[in-house]
Every structure is written in structure tokens, then in C-alpha cells.
């Protein structure tokens, strides 16, 4: 139950932060990338605030022997810079630049009834589902154990 409450509170804080920062407005996000038009520095400040708190907070957390409501920390350990990372990130960047929604703000806007975000999210979930199918297909073909 504590695990669910803390996840709920994290979602609440995250959504509140997106709203307060202006990142729920796709025009602000795109404005950051429009260096040759009317440049909007907001995203840089949001990242600075987020990175500052998270970098310090993570250091403090990870000095503890484990999380409060789970057995251990689950942190990615891979260091490999493979094609999958670059191609996936590039595809994501292309979609992000077309509309100005990344997954968090898209869900927030869709939940708030912005109809363009609802269509966007529908397609986003379809994209995630297709990736999952492809990944499971190739894992089955290679005889490797499937990841959850």
C-alpha cells in the first residue's frame, strides 16, 4: 500500500511540476528548440531545476542500504552505446519535434481533455505496443529469455 501511495504522490508531484513549469504547453517546448525564431529558454530552466534536485536527491537516496518500500534499488547498469539506443532516441526526437509532446506532457494534456493529445496518446501507445511485439518476437527467435 505504501508503495502505491508513494507512486501516486510521485505522479502528482510530476504532473504538478509539468503544469507549473509550462511544459504542458507544446508551444513552449518547441520554442526552446527554435533557436532561429522566437527562442523560449523555459525547458533549460526546467531541466536545471529537475537535474539539480534529482542529482542531489539520488546521491542521498543511494547512500541508504535500500528503498523504503521495496527490497532493492532497480537501476539500469548497461553502458553499451548500441544502435538501438541511437535509432530509438532519434525516432523519439522526430516525433517530439513534430508536435511538442513527449510522453509525460502528452498524458497530462490527454487527461485534461486536450483532444489533440488524446489522438497523440492513442498512437503513442500503439507505437509502444508495436515495439513490445517486435522485441518479444526477436527474443523468441533468438531463444533468449523474454524480459518483462
Amino acid at each position: 500500500m505504501k508503495r502505491l501511495l508513494s507512486a501516486f504522490a510521485a505522479g502528482l508531484l510530476f504532473g504538478g511540476g509539468l503544469l507549473l513549469s509550462g511544459m504542458a504547453d507544446p508551444a513552449r517546448v518547441l520554442g526552446f528548440f527554435d533557436l532561429f525564431g522566437l527562442w523560449d529558454p523555459t525547458l533549460a530552466l526546467v531541466m536545471a531545476g529537475g537535474l539539480g534536485v534529482t542529482a542531489l536527491g539520488y546521491r542521498w537516496c543511494l547512500r541508504r542500504s535500500g528503498p523504503l518500500c521495496a527490497v532493492h534499488y532497480q537501476i539500469p547498469t548497461s553502458q553499451s552505446l548500441d544502435a538501438r539506443l541511437f535509432v530509438g532516441s532519434a525516432l523519439f526526437g522526430l516525433g517530439w519535434g513534430l508536435v511538442g509532446y513527449c510522453p509525460g506532457p502528452a498524458i497530462l494534456a490527454a487527461g485534461g481533455g486536450v483532444y489533440q493529445a488524446l489522438w497523440f496518446c492513442l498512437a503513442m501507445v500503439a507505437g509502444m505496443a508495436l515495439w513490445k511485439m517486435l522485441e518479444q518476437g526477436s527474443a523468441a527467435q533468438a531463444g533468449a529469455p523474454q524480459r518483462g
Binding site: A7, V46, V53
Partner: peptide, 23 residues
């Protein structure tokens, strides 16, 4: 508000790590 909003997002990330150990 941009900085404060970013800090809230950071607080959310820290909470999820501190409580549930998740990214």
C-alpha cells in the same frame, strides 16, 4: 515557475527512488 516546476519534477523522481527504488 520554470525552475520551481523543474524542482517539483526532480522531487517526484527522488520520491520514487527513495520509496520504491525505481527510475
Amino acid at each position: 515557475t520554470a525552475l520551481a516546476g523543474g524542482m517539483l519534477i526532480g522531487a517526484a523522481a527522488v520520491l520514487l527512488m527513495l520509496a520504491n527504488g525505481r527510475i
